[in-house]
Amino acid sequence: MPGTSSFHQRVAADKRAAILAAARTLFADQGFARTSLAQVAAAAQVSKATLFKQFPTKDALFDAIVEEVWAPRAHLTDDLDPADPGTGLRAVGAVYAELLGRPDTAGLFRLVIAEAPSSPDLGRRQFDLGKLPFFDEVRRYLRATADAGSLHVPDPTTATTQFLGMISNFVLWPRMFLVDWNPSDAAVAHQVEEAVLTTLARYGAR
């Protein structure tokens, strides 16, 4: 019956969310290497069989956390007009700032940094599954603005690094060192606007 199928899907989704939340907490509290899947199952109040069915390895669980954190990247620039880079960059910058301001994002970065000596591959997987796809989305948009003649961007990689860096340097990186860093929405919006204006001034079509 359709209703029964929908119910089971909701139950599975709820259990998946509980598992991911428990894993994030345990990874943050005691580290990735010292956390077992059995501990995650117990904290999520699901059976080990249920956890193993969705996440057969701890690496698969970590990858799911990364993909969930960076989910806003999906199709980020599909509907942005390359002929209007100001509006497009403001939209991208707002999404990026919101993503970096989430506690889960800061927690993921702290985990990767803390575990680097014992689990260096976590950083690579966080980059490959999370940051790089987002970066590529923005780089494709900047390349499209160049193709449209609305910006002059000879090196989209450098332009993307500069634009995203102006935002992350205000929103995310102070949070790695200052536990009380919590800029207001207005301050974040101002930083995004400054990043947009700086990019438009640097790469405005000649």
Score class of each variant (00 low, 15 high):
Arg139Thr: 15
Pro133Ile: 12
Val112Ile: 15
Thr160Pro: 04
Lys131Val: 15
Met166Ser: 06
Pro133Glu: 09
Gln162Asn: 11
Arg125Trp: 01
Leu151Cys: 14
Met166Gly: 12
Ala116Asp: 07
Thr105Pro: 00
Asp155Cys: 02
Met166Gln: 10
Tyr141Trp: 07
Ala146Tyr: 03
Phe135Asn: 05
Ser168Trp: 06
Asp136His: 15
Met166Asn: 05
His152Arg: 12
Gln126Arg: 10
Phe163Tyr: 05
Met166Tyr: 04
Pro117Met: 10
Phe135His: 08
Phe135Tyr: 04
Asp136Arg: 15
Asp121Val: 15
Glu137Ala: 12
Tyr141Lys: 11
Arg125Glu: 03
Leu122His: 07
Phe134Gly: 14
Pro103Glu: 01
Leu151Phe: 10
Met166Lys: 01
Thr161Ala: 06
Gly107Phe: 00
Arg124Val: 15
Arg140Leu: 05
Asp136Pro: 08
Gln126Ser: 13
Asp147Glu: 09
Ala146Ser: 11
Leu164Asn: 06
Arg140Pro: 06
Gly149Gln: 02
Leu142Tyr: 09
Phe134Met: 14
Arg140Ile: 00
Arg140Val: 04
Glu137Trp: 04
Glu137Arg: 05
Arg110Asn: 01
Asp128Ser: 13
Thr160Lys: 03
Thr145Ile: 09
His152Met: 13
Ala146Glu: 11
Ser118Leu: 12
Phe163Asn: 04
Arg110Ala: 06
Val171Ala: 02
Leu108Trp: 04
Thr161Ser: 09
Phe109Gln: 11
Gln162Trp: 01
Gly107Ala: 00
Leu151Asn: 11
Arg110Lys: 08
Glu115Pro: 05
Ser118Glu: 14
Ser119Thr: 13
Gly149Ser: 05
Leu129Glu: 13
Thr161Leu: 03
Pro120Cys: 06
Asp155Phe: 00
Gly149Phe: 01
Tyr141His: 14
Asp128Trp: 01
Gly107Thr: 10
Phe127Trp: 05
Gly149Val: 08
Pro117Gly: 10
Gly165Ala: 11
Ala148Phe: 05
Glu137Cys: 08
Arg125Phe: 00
Phe163Asp: 04
Lys131His: 14
Leu129Gln: 09
Asp121Trp: 07
Arg110Pro: 02
Asp128Leu: 13
Arg102Gly: 04
Thr157Asp: 06
His152Ser: 15
Leu172Pro: 02
Leu172Ile: 12
Ser150Ala: 11
Ala114Arg: 08
Phe170Asn: 01
Thr160Ala: 05
Arg139Cys: 13
Ile167Trp: 01
Met166Pro: 02
Gln162Tyr: 05
Leu108Asn: 12
Pro117Ile: 12
Ala146Ile: 02
Arg124Glu: 07
Arg124Gly: 08
Glu115Ala: 10
Leu164Ser: 08
Lys131Asp: 14
Ser118Ala: 14
Thr161Phe: 00
Ala159His: 01
Gly123Glu: 03
Pro117Val: 12
Thr160Cys: 06
Leu108Met: 09
Thr160Tyr: 00
Phe134Cys: 14
Gly101Lys: 00
Tyr141Met: 14
Gly130Tyr: 00
Phe170Ser: 07
Gly165Ser: 08
Leu132Gly: 14
Arg110Thr: 11
Asp121Gly: 11
Asp104Glu: 14
Val112Glu: 12
Pro120Tyr: 03
Thr105Val: 00
Arg110Glu: 14
Thr157Gln: 05
Gly165Met: 04
Glu115Gln: 06
Gly101Ile: 07
Ser168Ile: 11
Val153Asp: 04
Leu108Gly: 13
Gly101Ala: 02
Thr158Gly: 09
Pro154Phe: 03
Phe109Tyr: 12
Ala148Met: 02
Thr161Tyr: 01
